[in-house]
Design a protein around this nucleic acid. Structure first.
Length: 501
RNA sequence: UCCCCGAUAGCUCAAUUGGCAGAGCGGGCGGCUGUUAACCGCCAGGUCGUAGGUUCGAGCCCUACUCGGGGAGCCA
């Protein structure tokens, strides 16, 4: 709006009169003094309205203004440590643009279901706002990294004609009477553009109809996939670690405040620098079945049990207090703590239940299976930096992955596991570039070569060693921000059973 | 698809284990010139997810269903 100043610019306008335009985030009053917290998309600002400094009628209106009313406020900027953001506005005038009443999202806690079904409003709240800013940085860093390193953006189609590897996990759409599928990956298509430009990437939404109901899954998510001609596995790993480190660096640079607000582990993000740990699948299996892992899990279980006992003790203590005669405010504080404790209790109980299952799965792990979610979690928990796991068994992996010529039982692929138990954020591989071997893998997997004719064709006309990987944007954001569920990391999440709005 | 948990005021949750349905926040009114999820006083607000059953009596016990959460498999 003409003549208005963004809250992010207040620091450059100290002692000057400005007008800000925004929404009322929260208001408090103390007699003849009002504290209005205004948000405008760039930040928050506390406006102080003194009775006498503005007209009585306006003061009365502002005093009863509902949360999320839109308005402009004019006043003089001053620095004050007591204010959010460090600056505040001594109001001299205000204009209410559109009053709001009974805003559903109050300054108290709400449940996920309620917030998600009010997602159109929830996005105005502080946590989604911080995550949204970080998502913007991550996406910008993704594009910046590839654009600055000689990659060409080549978009893959969203509607695919090929059924791909796993028809069950595809969304089918009716395309003028014949079936088509929403893309699961752009990889096959950009292998062909890589043969034109050398280094390419695609970045867009991806759709998976997997029946996965976990905190790490969305049915619609964003994935960036680079594909490079003339690259080998060590080259791919180097590319991936530089890429992920760059994203982490940019988020640290641009979003320290947001990370702090979210309570993210900033020291852990600072550790995300090359080189990352490198394990082969075989080494990972040896670790999983080792005494070291058994001890690690035992210790973890002991820790969980101790946590559980402490929580139980505290709950009993508080419940005892609640029965006795105590001050009203203490009672309320206790009640709030009890709610937190009970949810922590439920969480640690689940961990205790899962620990022996995971321990058994790890101990009984036999070479040849794909690593399960819990196995990845264990490996990831044992490291403080991202870990590459490479060279998985051929039988557990997709047909397009290149067979390791020095060990035909494995393929030249890798997963990148984020540390501290977060798990997989990247999957990638060198692609099979030999015409006959690719054909053989396709038939071995029970697929029809005629469905992949153009893809096989790429191996006919100047085939070269090449490869790439896919990085999940929401998983990356969840990992960096410490958000436990990736549905918070996309504005409008689509999950297996639930599409809120 | 399988296993576990839950559903009480607009929201977040209590209800001494079967005996009169409560608190905070939010809303309304009033008080307070430096509040930080402000505080203090008063007021309004309920078909206890749905259907059935047990019982003198059910928010609580039993059965089925609906919806939601967490986890497993699979994956980014």
């Amino acid at each position: 709006m003409k003549g208005t100043t963004y809250i992010s610019e207040l620091k450059n306008n100290v002692s000057k009169p400005v007008t800000i335009a925004g929404w009322l985030y929260n208001s408090r009053s103390s007699g003849k003094l009002l504290f209005l917290i205004i948000r405008d998309g760039t930040g928050m600002c506390q406006c102080i309205v003194e009775k006498g400094k503005v007209g009585d009628e306006l003061f009365g209106k502002l005093e009863h203004l509902g949360q999320e009313s839109s308005l402009t406020i004019s006043g003089v900027v001053r620095a004050d440590e007591r204010s959010v953001g460090g600056y505040e506005l001594a109001a001299t005038d205000a204009k209410i643009i559109s009053p709001s009443s009974d805003y559903p999202i109050t300054p108290k806690e709400h449940g996920t279901d309620f917030l998600m079904s009010h997602r159109h409003l929830h996005l105005r709240s502080q946590r989604p706002w911080c995550i949204g800013k970080i998502r913007h940085t991550v996406v910008d860093a993704v594009r910046r990294f590839f654009n600055d390193n000689g990659f060409i953006l080549t978009d893959a189609p969203i509607l695919m004609s090929m059924a791909g590897e796993d028809q069950q996990s595809l969304f089918e759409v009716d395309y003028f009477g014949r079936p088509m599928y929403l893309t699961q990956t752009g990889q096959l298509h950009i292998e062909s553009t890589a043969m034109s430009f050398g280094k390419v990437y695609c970045f867009g939404p991806t759709f998976r109809a997997e029946k996965s109901k976990t905190r790490r899954h969305l049915t619609e998510f964003w994935m960036v996939e680079p594909e490079v001609a003339f690259i080998d596995l060590p080259g791919l790993l180097e590319l991936a670690e530089n890429f992920v480190s760059y994203i982490a660096k940019r988020v640290l640079e641009d979003n320290t405040k947001e990370l702090q607000t979210l309570g993210a582990n900033i020291d852990a993000i600072k550790k995300i620098v090359p080189p990352f740990y490198r394990l082969t699948y075989t080494e990972a299996v040896n670790i999983l079945t080792s005494d070291k892992t058994r001890k690690f899990l035992d210790e973890q279980l002991a820790q969980f049990n101790e946590q559980k006992n402490n929580i139980e003790k505290r709950i009993a203590e508080l419940e005892e207090q609640q029965k006795g005669k105590i001050k009203e405010w203490q009672k309320e504080k206790n009640a709030a703590e009890l709610i937190d404790l009970r949810s922590e209790f439920a969480e640690v109980t689940t961990k205790i239940e899962n620990n022996p299952k995971h321990a058994r799965l790890a101990a009984e792990f036999r070479w040849g299976k794909d690593l399960g979610g819990s196995d990845e979690t264990i490996i990831s928990q044992m490291h403080d930096k991202p870990v590459f796991v490479t060279h998985y068994p051929k039988d557990a992996k997709a047909f397009y992955m290149k067979t390791d010529r020095s060990n035909p039982k494995v393929v030249e692929n890798f997963d990148l596991l984020a540390p501290e138990g977060f798990g997989e954020i990247i999957g990638g591989s060198v692609r099979e570039d030999d015409y006959n071997m690719l054909l053989q893998r396709i038939t071995e997997d029970g697929l029809k070569p005629e469905n992949y004719q153009w893809y096989i064709d790429l191996r006919k006309y100047g085939s070269v060693p090449h490869g790439g990987f896919g990085l999940g944007i929401e998983r990356t954001i969840a990992w960096l921000t410490g958000e436990r569920h990736i549905r918070q990391c996309i504005p409008f999440p689509r999950m297996m059973d639930t599409v809120y709005i």
